[in-house]
């Protein structure tokens, strides 16, 4: 029971992290029609910049600022230099060009910081653990991630549903051509949306830093998971991204925690662990395949 509670919290925390990544990715797809494989690279850039600044200065606040600035700056630069030319292209071209960007950024990080993982540490005021539920000590840092993620989700909701810029973003997602026709400065809107997505990705990266190691290629794995999230949620829908992120976070965490144990009942421990790990890695893809077979456009399709 206590294990289940702890794993549910872990699932929630992974879900929050995935939402930070998925929100930007799904908006970029919904509004610009761009499949951006390099989104994981922005996550990596944010994590590296933050971990490096933290090592140099010891200040967590500076590290957060550096991570956000690096990811946002990189995102805006990449949008202006490369991605802007891809909006009208076929998905295939977008996939390839952004695949090239992944190669570039992975190597750039390897040259700048080396192939050894960087260690980012949990700041003092967020270390230790608390007992939220009696008998279940839970790390404060992970709780903080959940809270911050929920705050960002609420902020994003406010931004998108209650501000003028959010109105343009929503209009862009559902009636792209109409927004263009009404004379909105679409180039600026695109850059804003992309920059926002990049900052959120960088934020996810710098929050992950202290939990996992910061290393080259860290964005590749989570990128695929993030795509699973937005496809399940319905590409282009922020609400879908939220639901998809929670679903994927829970399914991934719970199968990883409990599947090997269940398999041990029917086979030797070593092969149960290996098979369990493999099956739980597959679980989210199976989830996605099922969702797409029932609803080919995802749970909350954005375009009418």
């Amino acid at each position: 029971m206590t294990l289940l509670a702890e794993q549910l919290l872990n699932g929630l925390q992974l879900g929050v992290m995935l939402f930070l990544l998925a929100a930007g990715l799904t908006l970029v797809f919904g509004i610009m029609g761009l499949i951006n494989l390099a989104h994981g690279s922005l996550y990596m850039v944010g994590a590296f910049a933050s971990a490096w600044v933290q090592q140099r200065t010891g200040s967590f606040a500076l590290a957060v600022l550096a991570g956000l600035a690096a990811a946002g700056g990189t995102g805006i630069a990449v949008e202006a230099l490369v991605l802007r030319r891809l909006y009208a292209r076929e998905h295939m071209d977008q996939v390839l060009a952004t695949f090239g960007l992944i190669m570039f950024f992975n190597e750039l990080m390897a040259i700048l910081f080396g192939r050894q993982p960087l260690m980012a540490s949990i700041p003092g005021f967020l270390s230790g653990s608390v007992e939220l539920i009696p008998g279940v000590p839970y790390p404060v840092f992970r709780l903080a991630i959940i809270l911050v993620g929920v705050a960002v989700a609420i902020g994003l909701y406010y931004l998108i549903s209650h501000t003028r810029i959010g109105m343009l973003v929503r209009a862009g997602a559902t009636h792209r051509d109409m927004v263009r026709a009404l004379g909105v400065d679409i180039v600026l809107l695109y850059t804003f949306v992309f920059g926002l997505g990049a900052v959120l990705a960088g934020f996810a990266g710098l929050l992950t830093g202290p939990l996992l190691s910061v290393q080259v290629g860290m964005g590749d794995r989570i990128l695929i998971t993030t795509f699973v999230v937005i496809v399940i949620g319905g590409v282009g829908s922020v609400r879908g991204a939220l639901v998809g992120a929670m679903l994927v976070g829970m399914v991934d965490t719970l199968t990883r925690a409990f599947l090997p144990g269940m398999l041990r009942g029917v086979m030797p421990a070593s092969s149960a662990d290996a098979l369990g790990a493999g099956l739980s890695s597959m679980a989210i893809f199976i989830l996605m395949a099922i969702v797409l077979l029932v609803r080919p456009r995802g749970l909350f399709p954005a375009h009418g």
């Binding site: 998905h91 695929i224 795509f227 496809v231 893809f285 996605m288 395949a289 797409l292 080919p296």
Partner: peptide
């Protein structure tokens, strides 16, 4: 049974499986 970006992701998902 899907098309467009969903087809890209479905094929990716099966290969990852």
């Amino acid at each position: 049974r899907t098309s467009g970006v969903s087809f890209i992701m479905m094929t990716l998902a099966f290969a990852e499986m």
